[in-house]
Design a protein around this nucleic acid. Structure first.
Lengths: 157, 157
DNA sequence: TATTGTTATACTCTATAACTATA
DNA sequence: TATAGTTATAGAGTATAACAATA
């Protein structure tokens, strides 16, 4: 099922004077739904997609991954359990610290990761396609600026 | 817990030639996290926030709401059950169709809806604050265009 | 027969608290 | 003591399938 507008209705009422912010709410929903659709096409949950992408570069420890994904380590335990059960990732020991474990991509997981990544990039590309070429770059640049300042704020707090 | 980058890593590897699309993935995460944070500040789940906003204008029927939110009607039953248990909404009969029910905001639900909507608008406003004034409008305009074309595509399919 | 909504069931994602093992 | 990770528990959100009541 695909969402249409809803959350934005109230913003149109309560946020007058605040500009076109409701568009950002819809944008969040469109982007999130798009990624969820791509994940589903590859038989992944959105969170599994993010997990695989987090392992694209190299194995990561649980603490590290939990932080990257913005979830508690206990939640990650379950996430990795399920991904492991599906043959996407493996837990391996970390040399030099017998408390820790590394999570690594399996062969299948690596393929799923690449397929998902490619699919997301392609789907987002299609989303921008209707825009004039010049606007696409502008939009990405501004998106990047917003993300950057948001992260800067969070890191301070 | 707040997420940092992760999903975008693989895109940087697999999506070369596709431009700055990874920024859009991060943007989705930043926007979604921001709305989740605001919901939490008002003791709502993100989905409850969306539900309340969907009822801001007038009562809605279950089928209608499920469609707006992009979930199955059975899932909406549970969502409304929990919201009703918290005193945010009520189920009332629809005159003229004894199969249907309307969902309406309670007094509390209405206040929560306005508070949440205001909070979201304010939080999104802060997110744009670091941008030059001119860029803010541009960003919202482009966001609106992306959303519009995405919805147009979905409506066709 | 078709539509509206609920119930039953199962799974994913999440948090908190308590625990084990290692540093 | 502090850190890494798991287990236990509880709750939210979701889908599918089967169902009841009404149109």
């Amino acid at each position: 099922m695909r969402p249409d507008e809803t959350t934005t209705d109230v913003l149109r009422c309560t946020a007058h004077g605040l500009g076109e912010l409701p568009e950002l709410v819809e944008l969040a929903i469109v982007l999130t739904s798009t990624m969820a659709r791509v994940a589903e096409e590859h038989e992944l949950t959105p969170m599994q997609g993010r997990l695989l992408c987090g392992l694209g570069e190299q194995p990561r420890r649980m603490v590290d991954l939990a932080q990257s994904l913005g979830i508690e380590k206990a939640a990650l335990t379950g996430l990795v359990d399920r991904a492991e059960r599906r043959g996407l990732v493996e837990r391996t020991p970390v040399p030099g610290d017998r408390r820790a474990v590394q999570v690594t991509l399996t062969e299948d997981g690596g393929q799923a990761m690449v397929a998902f990544g490619t699919g997301v990039a392609s789907a987002l590309g299609e989303l921008l396609e209707p825009l004039p070429v010049k606007d696409r770059a502008t939009f990405c640049r501004l998106a990047s600026a917003v993300v950057g300042s948001a992260r800067a704020t969070w890191d301070h707090a």
